Amino acid sequence: MNVSIFGLGYVGLANTLLLAQNEHVKAYDIVKKKIDMLQEKKSPIEDKEIQKFLNRNDLNVDFTPNFIDSVKFSDYLIIATPTDYDEKKNYFNTSTVEEVIEKALAIRPDATFIIKSTVPVGYTEELKEKYGTDNIIFSPEFLREGRALYDNLHPSRIIVGECSERGQEIANMFLENAHDKDVPVLLTHSTEAEAIKLFSNTYLALRVAYFNELDTYAESRSLNSKQIIEGVGLDPRIGSHYNNPSFGYGGYCLPKDTKQLRANYEDVPSNIIGAIVEANTTRKDFIAEQILAKDPKVVGIYRLTMKANSDNFRYSSIQGVMKRLKAKGIEVVVFEPTLKGEEFFKSKVIKDFEEFKNISDVIVSNRFEPELQAVEEKVYTRDIFGRD
């Protein structure tokens, strides 16, 4: 099958390499530098499986800056462009998705689209009506940053928002390229598929917020948070996964998806969804207060990334903590090897780790790394289990 993919971030690039095992893939991105890197087999994002696949010579993939050729080439056009959350409109900014569809339909009116970008509930039906076509299908993506290709090779489930033979064909395409074959496949209506995506990510945010709030209570009462979490997790209905406290949920998906779901609840009675969003703000307030209580003159931020083996710090919770500290007049410095500039949010970026350790009165780290052991007495973290 011929497939074109538009947008080569985590979602698009992971799908490109997944499908290129057995399908013929054209992969397009508006950023020429990214295409150049991929043509040289260099990954623009930190993901070991992606880099491993790029080094292979048996994949059927063409990374191209040619939009028209990509549209004309394929049976299916997969859209994986960014849909950031617009705080003023309380809505995902879906303009990139619509731009691809409009430009593609002008070239090829019979084009069939699979949307992988996260969108509001009801969006696909609106697009079908707007563009007068039934050839728009939503298929949600479930992946972790830094493990994007792995999570496509070993998916938890495959969901396609169309109950039809075509929907089954799309599901089979993803399943046949996965390494795990015993994967649940669910065909739903498009709006239900959109809801599955948002409710899934909001539940994950709820779990993070819950264990963070447990940890806030334990730290406030001088209790052993690890013992409490371990005891709670022994209940098999709760489990011992995804329970390591942090400075708040962050990354590209959870903050925006929870806010979008809250916006979708505008005329629907609810309590929990809004509380999940608010809990993240409360947690960052608490973390900042705990750091301020140590009366530091200079606070060092060790890594802006949310997770180990990641180069992404979009919407990371540590940035919210930084803003709160700076608002109180605290000097904040940053150690982040992936940064190229000399400043980040008007905070000095220190490239030398020894200088960073010496200048910082308190070192704030969402996750504790071995190189911090020498200055462990300076480190403030809520990393209890030593995992993401």
Rank of each mutant, 00 (worst) to 15 (best):
N22P: 05
K48R: 11
G12P: 04
D257T: 08
Y85V: 12
L204D: 05
A293V: 05
F356V: 02
Y315M: 12
D62E: 15
N152P: 01
A14S: 15
V3R: 09
T216F: 10
K297C: 06
V183D: 12
Y123D: 10
E230Q: 15
L77P: 13
D69F: 03
V183Q: 07
A209H: 13
D84M: 07
S70L: 06
Y91H: 15
V375H: 07
S316W: 02
K130A: 01
I79S: 09
F211W: 11
A111S: 14
E99I: 09
Y123R: 05
Q168S: 14
S95K: 08
N244L: 15
H24I: 15
E266D: 11
S164P: 01
Y203H: 08
Q227S: 12
F92D: 07
G329R: 08
L54S: 04
S365N: 09
Q21E: 14
D388P: 03
E354H: 12
F142V: 03
L187D: 04
K128D: 08
E192T: 00
H24F: 15
N172A: 14
E176S: 15
K256N: 12
E266C: 06
L186N: 05
V208E: 05
S74Y: 08
Y210C: 01
L8K: 03
E343V: 04
K34L: 00
D182F: 00
D285Q: 14
E230A: 10
F113K: 02
R324G: 11
D69A: 04
R262W: 05
Q319M: 02
T83F: 01
N224I: 04
Q227L: 14
T188G: 00
V333T: 15
I330Y: 03
N358Y: 06
A195I: 01
K284Q: 04
E192K: 00
S139W: 04
D388H: 07
D285F: 14
V232Q: 09
D285T: 13
T216Y: 11
L198K: 00
G386Y: 05
Y10H: 07
D257L: 07
N224L: 02
A279R: 08
E102M: 11
D36L: 02
G250R: 03
S70T: 07
K197T: 00
G167E: 08
R303E: 06
R237L: 05
N366Y: 03
T191W: 00
N55P: 03
I137V: 08
L304R: 12
V100Q: 12
P120I: 06
R303H: 14
K42T: 10
F138T: 03
P296R: 00
I330L: 08
I50G: 04
I350D: 05
K294D: 09
A14M: 10
L198Q: 01
I136R: 00
H24R: 14
V379Y: 11
V100H: 13
P236K: 15
Q21L: 07
I50R: 11
D388S: 11
E278W: 04
